[in-house]
Write a protein that binds this DNA or RNA. Structure first.
Lengths: 348, 348
DNA sequence: TTGAAAGCGGTACCAT
DNA sequence: ATGGTACCGCTTTCAA
């Protein structure tokens, strides 16, 4: 079963019009070295028989398949699916398409994905590092081989290229400040794995707020989920640990949709009142956090824009012959949406 | 910038080993007409230099790119992103990849997508119809041209091929029965557009339950969202309409994640108590509906399995020379998760 | 068992 | 301005 069994080729047109393939080829691509009359003729015919150049033949020639490989944590994740949406819309217009692979926060899968994508001869890579990734050698290899890469969300500085990220430091800073202003001082943070850029950035913003407000930093308030909160037990353990710490935290900032929703569910199960006993601020891209109980204060990331910007930068990279003079690090603003879960602390 | 600048080709191997390209080609594909000794030699060399056949060249030859086109409503949608996840995992293993396009519930985009995918020479199509789609001529055309299609979720009987769907009738039946058992009799239904298979099916289950319980069917309790609840106003209008109907509905069954979450948010804004004033049962694939306020009774669809099954059937279709004797309609069970939002009605 | 050569559908160089 | 031709990397007769 082939796709376009009735597809028409250059040769067909040439034969029908008594021209050479070469001429026809140039005519359809509007070359200056072809007379207007001929162009007319050819393009008319082409349109009438709706000629479409055979992609694979073109690919074979110029090793450019108009496709982009994407490595993403997981498709069913609000943040990533919005990112994908942005990438899809950017690539759709420029006639590229994305080939999606999921790392599922596993380094092994990430490496397999790189391999798979390079076999598929993608023109470039959009990647967000998995929670397990420490070394980026596997990316270095393909990058040095000439495949442009743009990192988004979880990025690395070890490879010189464009990066697109949310303002994670700013987001955490705003969230932490907000909690402090509302009277919370023992603020915990459940975050992703240590190595990730987002983790470090968020921690930075968090610490900055504490410092500015003269609140001591307590390392036992920081809990890392090495698998990005992939499973509930990981989150549950973090929360149990936090509940043991003396003095017990009076607020938690959670670092991803998964962790946020998981944490809320667990606290609810444990009958811990939010914000009565513990206030919450969560990174989340869920569409309607006001239907949560309680309504959740969120730090939202411009996921769609991140995806879109990353794709656009990558396409620019792919289509420019020479690497740019300097690489961009695009930092997109986050937003703090204040709701019930971080309401001001009651004075005793 | 090309992808595998250092990629090794058959010719390279041939030269290095003093063989012909033809021989090498056959050897790497383990042809019977090549001696074991030569195979050894060739494959050793190939492995050492990690030879990978050039996909585009292969594609050019046999018009089979090991790629599958997907048409989906929207990526950032719990249901669809789970479906995608299932498709991705099925195709990943078999070395296919999916090219995703979003219809965004628009017929125009759906048609463009078909065109785009057929230009990309996909080997087959996985499609869920948009909310606007009435005629399926555009699919008929490509299908008759020999591209296998498997429909999932929103299907059509006008094209003879495999279908994979959730047990929508069963889901609505269970949900409706549950509400009736809990004392609700004026049950409204906010659903997708009229033409969709899922709409008809769900209505069937709903009506069946009413009939069995001797409750008259009231057409003004049924509200259609012609854009699948793409925007809030559409849902808000439906709800406002319902609130006018006399007697006012005492329960609502909502037909998709979007509609469900939108409806909850709107009712909440209107300060209508759930289930006190109106009970709710919603189709939803949200991961933690227990953190909603109130905890939401849901009908969940096996989204991942739908995607997986559809992809598997399609690959089977692609790889079999002849069309199968008969086509399958795979119906996967839904689940009813009873929670707070549909709690038993208080007796007055 | 091995290999020469044609061809898949384009593109690009070089003549004409 | 137009056309002949080689080639991209692989597969597939058909001969040797």
């Amino acid at each position: 079963m082939k796709l376009n069994p009735d597809a028409i080729t250059l040769k067909d047109i040439a034969k029908a019009l008594n021209l050479s393939v070469a001429t026809v080829s140039k005519a359809v691509r509007d070359s200056h070295e072809i007379s207007d009359a001929t162009k007319q003729l050819v393009n008319d015919y082409a349109r009438r028989h709706n000629y479409r150049p055979n992609l694979m033949a073109q690919m074979l020639r110029h090793k450019n398949g108009r496709s982009i490989g994407v490595i993403i944590g997981a498709i069913p994740n609000n943040f990533f699916s919005e990112v994908l949406n942005g990438m899809e819309s950017a690539t759709y217009q420029r006639d590229y398409h994305i080939i999606i692979t999921q790392s599922l926060e596993s380094l092994a899968r990430e490496m397999k994905n790189v391999e798979h994508l390079s076999w598929r001869a993608v023109d470039g890579l959009l990647v967000s590092l998995s929670a397990e990734t420490k070394s980026v050698e596997h990316f270095k290899k393909v990058h040095e081989a000439g495949i442009p890469i743009v990192f988004y969300d979880r990025v690395t500085d070890e490879i010189k290229t464009h990066q697109v990220v949310a303002d994670n430091a700013g987001g955490s800073y705003a969230g932490t400040m907000h909690l402090i202003k509302n009277g919370y001082t023992r603020i915990a943070h459940i975050t992703s794995s240590r190595e990730l850029s987002i983790t470090t950035e968020r921690l930075k913003g968090y610490e900055k707020a504490l410092r500015e407000q003269g609140i001591p930093f307590n390392p036992s308030y920081i809990k890392y989920c090495n698998h990005g909160g992939k499973d509930l037990p990981e989150i549950e353990e973090a929360i149990n640990d936090l509940l043991q710490v003396k003095p017990r935290p009076d607020a938690i900032i959670t670092a991803s949709d998964r962790i946020t929703i998981g944490a809320m569910a667990i606290l609810k199960k444990k009958k811990i009142r939010i914000p009565g006993q513990i206030a919450m601020v969560g990174y989340s891209n869920f569409s309607a956090p006001e239907i949560f109980e309680p309504e959740l204060t969120t730090i939202t990331q411009p996921a769609y824009e991140i995806g879109r910007a990353a794709a656009e930068l990558l396409i620019k990279l792919i289509e420019s012959k020479r690497p740019p003079a300097k690489f961009e690090k695009k930092i997109l603003p986050t937003e703090l949406h204040i709701r019930e879960s971080s309401q001001g602390k009651k004075k005793k």
